[in-house]
């Protein structure tokens, strides 16, 4: 998505008249940015502030506050491994370690080819399927370390 297309999207969003207050469009606008760009850059925030008529810092505050918005470049696929208590008790940390080992990066980092970002994530409400992993919007439940390469291959991982 180019910045110009993005501006059109935000204008479309604003004309939906979903909210009676322009500030309320900030989060939906940031979601559009999060899904279409590798990172929410200052340039994107300027566009949002401009179209919505809000202050620049209001957009940056929102982008920095919420854990699911990335202001640093992220990979095409975000692997979120739950490490909160229920998943931890059932081996969530081993799964995370396995992912990190296979991709050769630490939690929070992105692979060199820009394909994967791994995140040690907080509870995603999938505790009945602990340990749980999500890749973008897809869920993987009751994951075992043996299944990790299979998950990665599904998303184009070139490793063995």
């Amino acid at each position: 998505m180019t910045l110009e297309e993005f501006r059109k999207e935000i204008e479309k969003l604003k004309s939906s008249r979903k909210y009676l207050y322009n500030g309320s469009y900030i989060l939906p606008a940031l979601w559009i940015a999060e899904k279409n760009f590798s990172a929410i850059t200052p340039e994107i925030m300027r566009t949002i502030a401009d179209v919505l008529g809000v202050r620049l810092i209001e957009v940056e505050e929102a982008a920095e506050f919420y854990a699911m918005f990335h202001t640093k470049p992220k990979g095409k696929y975000i692997i979120r491994v739950c490490t909160n208590l229920s998943c931890m008790l059932r081996g969530g940390e081993e799964i995370l370690e396995k992912f990190c080992d296979l991709l050769g990066i630490s939690p929070g980092e992105t692979t060199e080819d820009g394909l994967f970002t791994i995140e040690a994530f907080e509870c995603m409400g999938l505790c009945d399927g602990a340990p749980a992993v999500t890749v973008n919007e897809e869920r993987f439940l009751n994951v075992t370390p043996e299944e990790v390469p299979k998950i990665l291959k599904k998303f184009g991982w070139k490793g063995k």
């Binding site: 469009y25 979601w31 854990a67």
Partner: peptide, 22 residues
């Protein structure tokens, strides 16, 4: 309205702030 990863937004006044884009 979709949140974006903040547990505190389960608190009702924080949720309202979040709904206002703050």
């Amino acid at each position: 309205h979709s949140g974006a990863g903040a547990y505190i937004c389960g608190e009702e006044t924080a949720l309202i702030n979040s709904l206002e884009g703050r």
